[in-house]
Write a protein that binds this DNA or RNA. Structure first.
Lengths: 221, 221
DNA sequence: CCTACCGATCGGTAGG
DNA sequence: CCTACCGATCGGTAGG
């Protein structure tokens, strides 16, 4: 047990060790991400994942050590997926209103036609965990807080550069954009509302309307 | 079994029958509502409720017949609670912008200082069930859809009465108000953000801004 | 990565 | 409303 070297079962098989193990780990996380998007992270069960993947329960939990460690790993993977889809394509743009508008476009695309069956993973788990305690909740808070701060930061730059009206509060922008995204996610997932993406775009355009007198005016007069 | 009259265990006790049964049912639903606001309706377990209430599991499930019937009953109770707190106080106002503004005030109050530990019950279960199937999801869709239609209807009246600008889309109003509420709920529950209610009020005031030229102007110039 | 197994708990039922 | 019980499943471990 604590006697140093354990028996290495993988030495029994001639196939590559670490590589295949990483593949299995990835397959488990990938499947768990799909399931958790609809069932939540707490709704995950080792037995269902094992059935889905043709593994034993021990084979599912082994690479992670516990269900909670799996939950945390899946959350990280989902965050990478969101960042790659929404932020990465616009990250190289110059900070400010331009990048914020581009990010919202990507964000709305991502919610309107989500890669996971349950829609926005973060929204699902943030709602699931906002009344619980522990490491998973803490990780959700960190992830969602980081995203809101990204929005806040670009809004702040935009205000200083006079790309947004001077009386705009960056925290208000982040708050409202987040609400638009959540309302869109609910409209798509709960009501299959095909008009919701257009509504989200209109709402976001108003939140990010440039100062009057810049190019086109905001509305009439 | 199907032989007509079963043994009536309550006849054994001298206490009133239907009245006490209704009390027990109410106590179970009340406790289940508190738990479900944080753990979700699927997260409810008969065992935990039994422990909380000093009942047996059979005593918990008996009055409802199944966990699903309990879930549906709890959902209805939560809807009544929301309606009583948010809509009932303003229902007698005249339809239109005035009532919509008053309802949003109540709504924001309700989310800022929620009576249930998990915050907005409907938001929690709507997110929990948006990717599932069955009677509970269907009931959530009905409840949330009804609320959005209430907002939509008053916005429509307000536009026709020129209490809102003529180019305002009532569905857009309902969509945006719902987003503000969801963002507020998340800010309170996940971040304990004391500034969020004020942000929600500001955002709602903008969505419900009267036509320019009515009393005060919307912003500058 | 497996088989075999653990105690705990799940929703629910029989019968009174 | 209870006790006593059902089969199924939960997360997880031992050992290889």
């Amino acid at each position: 047990m604590t006697s140093g070297r354990e028996l290495d079962w993988s030495a029994v098989s001639p196939r590559s060790t670490a590589e295949e193990a990483a593949e299995t780990r990835g397959a488990i996380m990938s499947r768990a991400m799909v399931r958790a998007s609809t069932e939540g992270l707490e709704g995950l069960t080792l037995g269902h994942l094992a059935d889905d993947l043709g593994l034993s329960k021990a084979g599912v939990v082994g690479p992670f050590g516990s269900k909670q460690a799996l939950q945390l790993a899946v959350l990280q993977l989902a965050i990478v997926g969101f960042t790659d889809a929404v932020w990465k394509p616009v990250a190289t743009l110059r900070a400010g209103r331009e990048r914020l508008v581009a990010a919202c476009d990507r964000w709305i695309d991502h919610l309107a036609d989500p890669p996971l069956p349950g829609g926005c993973f973060i929204t699902t788990v943030a709602t699931e965990w906002d009344g619980r305690e522990g490491p998973v909740r803490d990780a959700v808070v960190v992830a969602q807080g980081r995203w809101l701060r990204v929005l806040h930061a670009d809004a702040e730059v935009a205000v200083r550069a006079r790309e947004l009206p001077g009386d705009v509060d960056p925290a208000q922008v982040a708050f409202e954009l987040n609400g638009i995204a959540m309302s869109l996610n609910q409209a798509v997932q709960l009501f299959h509302d095909a008009d919701a993406p257009a509504r989200a775009r209109l709402a976001a355009a108003r939140v990010l309307a440039p100062p009057s007198g810049t190019r086109r005016r905001s509305r009439s007069k």
